[in-house]
Simulated scan of single mutants.
Amino acid sequence: MTMRLAVAYDVSDDTNRRHVYRTLQRYGAWRQYSVFELEISKTDRVELEAELESHIDPSAGDRIRIYRLCSACQDATTDIGNDPPDGQSNVI
């Protein structure tokens, strides 16, 4: 069984931010500059969280927030403006 997640991150160091971006890219789709949507299993989520934690520095103010999106929430999602990006971000 899989779950849909929205992941937002704020990472100060360029190298750490790049690692977080690349980690999330392996699991899901980039939606906005610091936001990904993922469709993953419970096991993958545990692995993802451990890997993300290794790429941030909380003492520098780094944060990652993971939201689980229920089916009703997914159906109620609205995009305003441009379509989500298909290509690479401007991650350094």
Rank of each mutant, 00 (worst) to 15 (best):
I56C: 03
I40C: 03
I80P: 01
R17Q: 08
A8N: 02
A6D: 03
V11W: 00
F36R: 00
Q32I: 11
C73R: 04
Y21E: 00
V46D: 11
Y21V: 01
Y67A: 10
Q88L: 15
E37V: 07
T78Y: 11
S89C: 10
V46S: 15
I40F: 04
R31S: 08
L38E: 00
I66A: 03
Y21W: 13
R18E: 08
Q32W: 13
G87R: 04
T23S: 14
D83K: 10
Y33C: 02
C73H: 06
L48S: 02
A8D: 00
R65W: 10
R45I: 04
R31N: 05
E37G: 00
R18Y: 10
R4K: 09
Q25T: 06
I66V: 15
E47P: 00
A29Q: 13
S59M: 10
I40S: 03
N16P: 07
Y67T: 07
G28E: 06
M1F: 03
F36S: 01
C73F: 04
G28P: 03
I40G: 02
R31H: 09
W30C: 06
A29Y: 07
I64V: 15
R68D: 07
I56A: 01
P58W: 02
D75F: 04
D83P: 01
R31Q: 12
S12D: 05
D83C: 03
G87Q: 11
A60H: 10
D13Q: 14
Y9T: 02
L5T: 01
R17G: 04
R26Q: 14
